[in-house]
Amino acid sequence: MSALRAHDIVKWYGDLEVLRGVTFEVEPGQVKCIIGPSGSGKSTLLRILASLETPERGTVTLEDRAPGPGEVGMVFQRFNLFNNMSALDNVMCGLVEVRGLKKAAAREQATAFLERVGLADHASKFPDELSGGQQQRVAIARALVMKPKAMLFDEATSALDIELVREVLDVMEALARDGMTMVVVTHEMRFAQHVASSVLMMDEGRIVEEAPPDEFFSSPKEERTQRFLALVE
């Protein structure tokens, strides 16, 4: 049984066909990294997996049914924390609003998750008082606290200063070790190499190639993948 599955997804933005029949699945506990040039449809695929957009054709299933609220966690490039809430309130929000938890119970769980991303001391700080790396870790805790069956990362480190990338990647790696099912759109080739169960290359709305990382990086089969890897390495 696949954890998260997209079947034959077609998506149009006006006259532009961004996804041209993409079929894709992740097994429980797998980490799939998606790479590819900008405009290849990676982010759109992620948004469709997170039910943030509706495709023109195709279906998304989580354990063979429609995903429920908060069951597929999403982490964005620009963090997207709620600016009017403290770090703790950001993490609590989903528990209170979506899961209907009492404040005290939600606070307890949220604190535990902030601790897990190493930010228990920063619980009362507001987003504009946190560094980019800290904000992104709060965003990860906010998604995790909902107990998602899968986590999606949309270029989660691309907006960060170079010295802050590591702390976020560390959290993501720890998550992968704990057996979280993950789909990671990234430009971090070393992360893909070390953490991914398999790596996908996307271009022009299609999956060009998929292979285990060793094979993908050492001997890519497709000419398009070879060209892209030559460019980024």
């Binding site: 997170a50 943030l52 429920g68 609220p69 966690g73 924390l81 929000c93 906010r142």
Partner: peptide
């Protein structure tokens, strides 16, 4: 921020 809220299921 609205997108993030929707991703949480709000």
């Amino acid at each position: 921020q609205e997108l993030a809220g929707r991703a949480l299921g709000m």
